[in-house]
Amino acid sequence: MLRSASIKDVANHARVAVGTVSNVLNNPDRVSPRTKDRVLQAIEELGFVRNDAARQLRAGHSRTIGLIVLDVGNPFFTAVARAAEDAAALHGSAVLLGDSGHDAGRESGYIDLFQEQRVQGLLISPVGDVEERLDQLRERGVPTVLVDRLADDASYSSVSVNDVEGGFLAARHLLDIGRRRLAFVTGPTSVRQFADRLEGARRAVADVSGASLEVVESDGQTVLAGRGMGDQLVGRSADKIPDGIFCANDLLALGVMQSLAMTHTFRIPEDVALIGYDDIDFAMSAVVPLSSIRQPTEAIGRTAIELLAEELDETHPRHRAVVFTPELVVRQSTAGAAV
């Protein structure tokens, strides 16, 4: 196998010093146009590719940004990652994506990996309490921005959505169309976002006499997990089945919808009104278009990069918490369901 051309090979081919080649690559203004043209011609003829890893070691960091999300299989996080990647490209950076899978150990491994890669900074939607790890990163010159999670104090920048308000909007909508036996189908409530959505739903139910809210918790947050939760609910006696279901994300809601549809017994929304959270693309195209709470995924990803750029500004670094307001989107799974 042929050996890749080195910077020394380029210098010899162009009949210049190694330092001159380095200046052409990094400080071209220091080199005369004639010499620069000769070096660039040598680079093209030899097919030289700069060793970016070595450059990163000298500079202390790379042009990459680490992004760790809870579940890359969830279209919400995929959309956030895509928006962050587009925004990073405008800053001349690239995004390296890691999927923690809601696993703290896996999350820790990605933090270690991105630190070894000398990323410029880290964007993270954390599994749990990671402040100690993030403090260590900051001490080592790696700023961090929390994504889809409000920082507990002013020492970190964060971009999030008001999930308490989102939970309130979802439950209030079910109550407004006359539903009183509500169920909240969720992943582990140890996840901060799910706990906040539950808090909001409870606030809405507390305002309405005769209304109740049951929490149905699952280990997963996928369509399959939602189908399993739906099977549990439809297997009950008629008087124990909720007439309004709020799911902590759209994937769970789509699974519940599949379960209800397969029984050929329960109609959506006539018998059971159903609403999800995130407003992913699949929500609109479901068999019964799904009502949902919309999160501004593009704005979340773009803002995360902007906040990181502010953190990287050595002259005026600052921490900011940006909180977006969620939006109720009503479709056929709840529309016209008033009783």
Rank of each mutant, 00 (worst) to 15 (best):
S158E: 10
E165Y: 11
R149Y: 00
A151M: 08
A154R: 14
S155F: 07
G166E: 04
S155I: 08
A154D: 15
D176S: 14
L174A: 11
S157I: 01
L146Q: 00
F168P: 03
L146A: 04
G178E: 07
A171F: 07
A170W: 04
V159T: 06
V159G: 03
R179Q: 11
D152Q: 12
V164K: 08
S155G: 11
V159Y: 02
Y156R: 15
D152E: 13
R179Y: 10
L169T: 11
L150R: 14
F168V: 01
T144Y: 00
L174G: 12
D163F: 04
R179P: 10
L169H: 09
V159N: 05
L175E: 15
V161I: 15
L146R: 03
L169K: 09
L169Y: 06
G178N: 05
D153F: 11
D163M: 14
D153K: 07
V161P: 04
D152N: 13
R172S: 14
L175H: 10
A171Y: 10
D152L: 12
H173R: 13
S160E: 03
G167V: 09
D148H: 07
V164T: 13
V164I: 10
S158M: 08
N162D: 15
S160C: 14
D153P: 07
R179I: 10
D152V: 11
D148M: 08
G166K: 04
H173D: 13
L150T: 15
L174Y: 06
V147N: 03
V145W: 00
H173C: 12
S157C: 03
Y156K: 13
A154I: 00
S157L: 09
D176A: 13
V145E: 01
T144G: 09
D176F: 02
R172G: 03
Y156L: 14
A154L: 12
L150W: 03
V164L: 05
R149D: 03
